[in-house]
């Protein structure tokens, strides 16, 4: 029969010679290999101190955006919830009252906006569906939590800081300033 590759080796079943049977030479060879590993580069990254940079297209935690004047962009149209394949997004709409024009950009806004981070698959379809550019995926991931409830992110977790009241935090959340 023809061998599949030329790397096939017949199994050697001869008894060990006396020198082989005290294993010494093979042990020394093995020890030379392990010793050479002392000088090898360690691939480990000291995680909390050093972080591996994310790819520029990384899709992380969601952020609810504001416009330049600090007004919430979301109009609670529900397109993101419809687009979401994991059904992780729920929201409740409310009408903007007179005097709230500095808070909400349009007449309708999301009174409640929740994303279940345990359901979310971070596909980014909500970001693509949004006609108002109100939701996008940032470059952080959801931190661990003790309860399932802790993974349901509300508006206060998702909303980006106000660019007027807290410009430094806003820049940080946008990724404009160094963390």
């Amino acid at each position: 029969m023809q061998a599949l590759t030329n790397r096939a080796k017949p199994v050697e079943r001869r008894p060990m010679t006396w020198l082989e049977s005290i294993y010494l030479w093979n042990i020394i060879k093995g020890m030379a290999i392990t010793f050479s590993h002392i000088f090898k580069k360690k691939p480990t990254i000291n995680y909390p101190e050093q972080k591996r940079p994310f790819s520029p297209v990384f899709r992380g935690l969601h952020v609810l955006n504001r416009d330049e004047e600090g007004r919430e962009r979301c109009t609670a149209c529900g397109l993101c919830a419809v687009a979401c394949p994991a059904e992780a997004i729920t929201m409740e709409a409310a009408e903007r009252l007179p005097g709230e024009e500095n808070l909400y950009r349009e007449e309708k806004y999301a009174a409640k906006y929740e994303i279940n981070m345990l359901r979310c698959i971070f596909c980014g379809l909500c970001e693509e569906a949004c006609p108002k550019d109100a939701i996008y995926l940032s470059e952080t991931f959801a931190p661990s939590n003790y309860t399932r409830k802790g993974f349901i992110y509300g508006k206060d977790d998702l909303l980006i800081p106000d660019p007027k009241q807290a410009p430094a935090d806003f820049a940080k959340a946008k990724g404009l300033a160094e963390a």
Binding site: I22, G30, M31
Partner: peptide, 21 residues
């Protein structure tokens, strides 16, 4: 260094090495 290089002997290998070698 030896510990992190060599795997454990089988029991008959251990006895052979001890008594016969």
């Amino acid at each position: 260094w030896i510990r992190w290089t060599i795997p454990r002997f089988r029991y008959d290998q251990l006895m052979n090495l001890g008594w016969k070698k």
